[in-house]
């Protein structure tokens, strides 16, 4: 009887091993462990055994059943695993096919530049002031030390609507308006981005509409060295940490002293190349100390307060930064142009 059990166990294990799918395996289970199976038969035959032999044989039967059961489970797990793998293999896809595109637009390159500059100055404690694009002659010129009859305010250069109203030619009137609002009390610390208009024919380097960003700081004890430090900070954050700046004396009616500000060429690092026309420097800003007349006209005591102002053109900066060769691109809104500015 014992031999019979061992033989059955041997047979069952072999069949389990040979079962190639879950159904065959189930057949094996039914065949050996089912109610009509040979092991059950052996159990029935136990009646013929002596009381001493019965427990021994019973234990043996259970042992065999357990071995077969374990083998069945192991085999089942293996077969299930294989079945899953087969199914997954059939589900394989071509991962190189294109994904469902996400439609995404982006900032206009000028906005990109302007926001970058805004954020940079916000980080230095500036707020952003805005003002009207259609402006009074007073704010656009007179309050900026450009009295009537000044050569720099020729009718030919500005879009006048009436004698007293024109499209602003720079964002400086926002400075005048902001100072006026401060009623002679500092500090004032603003940048003013916005659209401006000049009577120019549109070509590769001129546009009758363009943008400007002006900055203004007015307080007691503002020094020209502060202007230099501020603009150096700006240049480094905007164009790279190893940039340097230099001042060249210049003239603007609303600042005195006035300077033009060059940044060392980011393309060649200052050695001279085609971008900087061999000079190593690129002009990007006009700046200076606020003219006492401008302070006084806005209600500030020029003996007590000093200030600096600077102005730059986002178009020019964008052209330098991205290598754009024609200013008209900014206003044609060719999607093939706009979409080039779609990433970090």
């Amino acid at each position: 009887m014992k031999e019979r059990l061992q033989q059955l166990q041997q047979e069952a294990l072999e069949k389990i091993e040979q079962a190639n799918d879950l159904k065959a395996l189930n057949d094996v289970r039914v065949a050996y462990l089912g109610k009509k199976g040979p092991i059950t038969e052996v159990l029935r035959g136990m009646g013929a055994l002596s009381p001493e032999e019965r427990p021994v044989m019973g234990a043996l039967v259970n042992e065999v059943r357990e071995v077969i059961q374990t083998a069945l489970e192991a085999r089942q797990a293996t077969l299930e695993q294989a079945e899953v793998e087969k199914k997954l293999a059939a589900e394989a896809i071509d991962v190189t096919l294109p994904g469902r595109p996400i439609r995404r637009g982006n900032h206009h390159p000028l906005t990109r530049v302007i926001e970058e500059i805004e954020d940079l100055f916000i980080g230095m404690g500036y707020t952003i002031a805005e003002g009207p694009e259609v402006e009074k002659d007073y704010y656009n010129f007179e309050a900026l030390n450009l009295p009537k009859g000044h050569p720099a305010r020729d009718m030919q250069d500005s879009f006048y609507i009436t004698e007293e109203i024109l499209l602003r030619t720079h964002t400086s009137p926002v400075q005048a308006r902001t100072m006026e609002k401060h009623q002679g009390r500092g500090p004032v610390k603003i940048i003013c981005p916005g659209k401006v208009y000049r009577r120019d024919n549109d070509d590769a380097t001129h546009s009758h509409q363009f943008t400007q960003i002006e900055g203004l700081v007015v307080d007691e004890h503002i020094r020209m060295s502060d202007l230099k430090g501020t603009l150096r900070e700006f240049a480094r954050k905007m164009f790279g940490e190893d940039r340097d700046i230099r001042f060249r004396p210049s003239f603007f009616p609303f600042t005195e002293p006035s300077v033009e500000v060059d940044v060392s060429c980011a393309n060649c690092g200052g050695h001279g190349c085609s971008v900087c026309k061999g000079t190593g420097w690129i002009e990007i800003l006009g700046a200076g100390m606020v003219h006492p007349n401008v302070l006084e006209m806005a209600g500030f005591d020029s003996k007590k307060y000093t200030g600096f102002a600077f102005g730059m053109g986002p178009e020019r900066i964008a052209m330098l930064k991205y290598g754009i060769d024609d200013i008209r691109h900014f206003y044609q809104n060719d999607v093939r142009f706009l979409q080039q500015f779609n990433r970090v």
């Binding site: 805004e118 100055f121 916000i122 980080g123 230095m124 404690g125 500036y126 707020t127 952003i128 500090p187 610390k189 700081v217 307080d219 007691e220 004890h221 503002i222 020094r223 020209m224 060295s225 502060d226 230099k228 430090g229 501020t230 150096r232 900070e233 230099r246 001042f247 060249r248 004396p249 005195e256 002293p257 006035s258 300077v259 100390m289």
Partner: peptide, 28 residues
């Protein structure tokens, strides 16, 4: 001041940052 500055040389001008009350800048 401008005459002095330009002939003194702007390259000799130090680079400093404004001192005074520091207020955080932010968007409206």
């Amino acid at each position: 001041i401008e005459e002095v500055a330009r002939l003194y040389g702007y390259d000799n001008l130090p680079a400093t940052l404004p001192v005074g009350e520091a207020k955080p800048g932010k968007l409206t």
